[in-house]
Design a protein around this nucleic acid. Structure first.
Length: 423
RNA sequence: GGAGGGAUGGCUGAGUGGCCGAAAGCGGCGGUCUUGAAAACCGUUGGGCGUUUACGCGCCCCGUGGGUUCGAAUCCUACUCCCUCCGCCA
C-alpha cells in the first residue's frame, strides 16, 4: 500500500507513478472519498467527546444523588446519532481502503521508463554462451530421451503444465534445493525457514497478491486458504503485525517451497518443458531491511542469487526492469536471465525486488527507531533460484553431443558423486 | 471429531459494570551514587487514527466481529487461536 499521506498531500507523485506504469486509476475519486472520510471522523469524534463528558457527569451524580432522567435520555439519543454516523463512516472507510489497496507501488527514481520488457535494461552479463559443435537440444527433448522428465504421464495424473521427474532428474531437483539452501545459509547468512504452503486471505493481502490478483491463485475449496504462489508470501508475513528492533535489521530468511500458479493469461505460451508450470519448486530469499539501507540490501540480495549460477558456472545476464514491466508491489526489480542454448533465449530464473514500505504497510511490519518511534521496514525478496528452471539451464548448458548431461562439479556431492547423466 | 479450560501492555500477572489505557513485578531506557560496574534509590516506558507549523488536544484499541447498557477489559453471542483429556491418524 502506498502511504495515504502521499496520496493526500502529493497527488502528483502518485499520478506520475501511475502514468509511468501505464495504469488507469481514478485518483480524484479516491481523494474525494478520503475527504469525506476525514470529515466524518471529525464529526463522530466530536460527538463522542460530548458523550464521554456527559457519561462521566452521570457517573459522578450517581455517587451522590441520582442523575436526571433527561440526561440519560439525552445520552441515549446521542448514542443513536453516533451509531448512525459510525455506520456511514465504516462504509466510507472500507471503500477508501479497497481503493488504496489497488494502487501499485511507486517506482524508484533509478527505474528506467518504458512500456514492455523490451525497454528493460541489461545491466550486467556474466560468462559466455557455451560453444557446441552440434545443435544443442531443448531440455524437454533431452529429458524425454534420458527418461528423467515425463510430461505425458504428469498430464495423465493431473493435467497440462505439470511434470513428473524421474531417477536422476528427481535427484537433481532435490540436490539443487539442498545446494541452494546450504549456500545461502552457510555463505550468505540467511536463516532457513520451512513455512506452510497454504495461507489465509490476510497473508495474501499483506504481500500484495490480493485483492487484485485472486484469479492467478489456487484457492482451496470450502476454506479461505490459498496455495502459495511463492515463499515470499508466508515468509514476509512471518513478521506481520510485529514491531522489530532496529538493531536486528536486516533480517534474512531463505526458504524452499513449492509454488502454485494458475498463470492465467499465459495460455499457449511456453507450453513445452519446465518453463511455465502450475507447480514448481523455488528457493526464495527474503529480507527485512532498514529503509536507509534497503537499496544496498537489494544489490547484495542480487549478488546472493547470482552466486548460485556463478557457482554452477552458467552464463546469465541481469536486467533492470522498466516501469511498465515492474510488478504491482515492487519499487525496483532486477531479473536474472539465464542462457538456454537449446532454445536460443535468455529466460528469467530469478527476480529480485525492493518493495520499500509497500508490503510492510499492508502487513504492518514495523521497527522501533532509536528515538522510540515506529517506522515501516522495507521488505525485499528474490528467487535464489527457481529450481525447475535451474534444472532446465543445467540440462541445456551441460549437454553433450550424445545427449548426456554433465553434472556441475558443485552439485556432485549432492548427487551421490555421479558426474554424468546418460542413457 | 468429542469434553473441558484459557486469550489483558516486551514478559509475568491483577482487575466482574462508571477517572482502567489498565495495579504490581520483571525487563528496557534516563538519572543519582561509583574510577568503572553491580546493588540500591528516583524517574520514565504500548499502538493506531484525526487535528495542529509546533507544544498540544481529541477519538479508538484489553484475541476478532456483533449485541445488551446512559456507560463494557468486566455481561451476552458468534468466530479465531492456544492448552488439557479422549478418539483418529502420518
Amino acid at each position: 500500500m502506498v502511504d495515504p499521506k502521499i496520496v493526500r498531500e502529493k497527488m502528483d507523485v502518485i499520478q506520475k507513478s501511475l502514468e509511468k506504469r501505464g495504469v488507469e486509476f481514478d485518483l480524484a475519486n479516491l481523494i474525494k472519498i478520503d475527504n469525506e472520510r476525514r470529515a466524518l471522523i471529525q464529526e463522530t469524534e466530536k460527538l463522542k467527546k460530548e458523550k464521554n463528558e456527559l457519561s462521566e457527569e452521570i457517573a459522578r451524580l450517581k455517587k451522590k444523588g441520582m442523575p436526571s432522567d433527561e440526561q440519560i435520555e439525552h445520552l441515549r439519543e446521542l448514542g443513536q446519532i453516533i451509531d448512525e454516523r459510525e455506520q456511514r463512516l465504516k462504509i466510507v472507510e472500507k471503500n477508501w481502503e479497497d481503493m488504496l489497496l489497488l494502487i501499485p507501488n511507486i517506482p524508484h527514481s533509478s527505474v528506467p521508463a518504458g512500456k514492455t520488457d523490451h525497454d528493460n535494461q541489461v545491466v550486467m552479463v556474466w560468462g559466455n554462451k557455451p560453444a557446441f559443435d552440434f545443435m544443442p537440444l531443448a531440455h524437454w527433448e533431452l529429458g524425454e530421451k534420458l527418461d528423467i522428465l515425463d510430461f505425458k504421464r504428469a498430464a495423465k495424473i493431473t493435467g497440462s503444465r505439470f511434470t513428473l521427474y524421474k531417477s536422476s532428474g528427481a535427484l537433481m531437483e532435490r540436490a539443487l534445493i539442498n545446494f541452494m539452501l546450504d549456500l545461502h545459509t552457510r555463505n550468505h547468512g540467511y536463516t532457513e525457514v520451512l513455512p506452510p504452503f497454504m495461507v489465509n486471505r490476510e497473508t495474501m493481502t499483506g504481500t500484495g497478491q490480493l485483492p487484485k490478483f485472486e484469479d492467478e491463485l489456487f484457492k482451496i475449496n470450502d476454506t479461505d486458504y490459498f496455495l502459495i504462489p511463492t515463499a515470499e508470501v508466508p515468509v514476509t508475513n512471518i513478521h506481520s503485525n510485529e514491531i522489530l528492533k532496529e538493531e536486528e535489521l536486516p533480517l534474512k530468511y531463505v526458504s524452499y517451497t513449492p509454488c502454485f500458479r494458475k498463470e492465467a493469461g499465459a495460455h499457449g505460451k511456453d507450453t513445452r518443458g519446465l518453463t511455465r508450470q502450475h507447480q514448481f519448486n523455488k528457493v526464495e530469499l527474503v529480507k527485512f531491511a532498514h529503509p536507509e539501507h534497503s537499496y544496498e540490501e537489494l544489490e547484495s540480495l542480487l549478488l546472493d542469487a547470482e552466486d548460485i549460477l556463478k557457482t554452477l558456472k552458467i552464463h546469465y545476464r541481469v536486467s533492470l526492469l522498466c516501469t511498465g514491466d515492474l510488478g504491482f508491489s515492487a519499487s525496483k526489480t532486477y531479473d536474472i536471465e539465464v542462457w538456454l542454448p537449446g532454445q536460443n533465449i535468455y529466460r528469467e530464473i530469478s527476480s529480485c525486488s525492493n518493495f520499500e514500505s509497500f508490503q510492510a504497510r499492508r502487513a504492518k511490519i514495523r521497527y522501533r527507531t532509536h528515538t522510540g518511534k515506529t517506522e515501516f521496514v522495507h521488505t525485499l525478496n528474490g528467487s535464489g533460484l527457481a529450481v525447475g528452471r535451474t534444472v532446465m539451464a543445467i540440462m541445456e548448458n551441460y549437454q553433450t553431443k550424445d545427449g548426456s548431461i554433465i553434472i556441475p562439479e558443485v552439485l556432485r556431492p549432492y548427487m551421490g558423486g555421479i558426474s554424468i547423466i546418460s542413457r
